[in-house]
Amino acid sequence: MTTLATPPEESVDAPARTVASAAPRRRRRRAGRVTAAGPLTYLLLALTTLVSVFPLYWTMVAGSHTNAEIAATPPPFLPDADLFTNIGRAMEEAPIGLAIVNSVVVAGCITVGTVLCCTLAGFAFAKLRFRGNGVLLGLVIGTMMVPTQLAIIPLFILIAELQWVDHLQAVVLPTLVSAFGVFFMRQFLTQALPDELLEAGRVDGASTWRIFWSIVVPVARPAMAVLAMLTFLTAWNDFFWPIIALTTNNPTVQVALAGLGGGYVPDRAVIMAGTLVGTLPVLVVFVVLGKQIVGGIMQGAVKG
């Protein structure tokens, strides 16, 4: 972390101190010492936090008022008592409970599948010697350049033939592995996993599979947590493919929310209440996985 302002050093001599106190406070650092953050840092951080939290807060405020109250000028800035009423109406209008369960299943499966497959592939590309390694990696990365929209029609024809329309596997299977994830894990493992660790494993008698589970996965955990979080969020928020593959009878959260507050005048209070309910699981994931993203696990493996 950088600091923006610290008091002048004691070692500054008297005339210099006069100058220093007259001039605006300058940033000073001492090698090897963590300096305290100044007021400007706190102000900037507080502003950033406010900007980040406000949409969530507004969702809660709007979800706890009636539609008319939200439209008033000035709009309300404090939560009201109608939150649970609005959540109840949202649940009646769309199967939000089922949608949350579906989304948890879909996003959970996609996350587990992606993290597992991408770590396996990333390990292979980063550390295993095999013919065609470079070409294959190039092909995998190349698929990132193909727009999703291009694949939608053939994909729909495929799942229709398999009679998977409105089934969750139609949303899960096409996204079980991602080129970005493979590339991300490969880059991480290339740098974070020393060859000596794998060789030590081989000399210790471990098979490649055992090395993967006992050595690679623990080392890759920070990157896996980041990939899991990104994948879960993307899967949870995905709208385009689920709205095509699923119906409101068996929706994910985003598909269900799309069906809320319909009519000539959209009922924003109900939409906001439903959105709030649909956002909570994502917040839980953030809180749980955020702790996993701790660097320094590699410290001490090899002498740096």
């Binding site: 020393p194 060789e199 030590a200 623990p218 410290q299 001490g300 493996a301």
Partner: peptide, 9 residues
């Protein structure tokens, strides 16, 4: 090994 290669976890 030269770098010890201890399993960090």
């Amino acid at each position: 090994f030269q770098n010890y290669a201890l399993y960090p976890h």
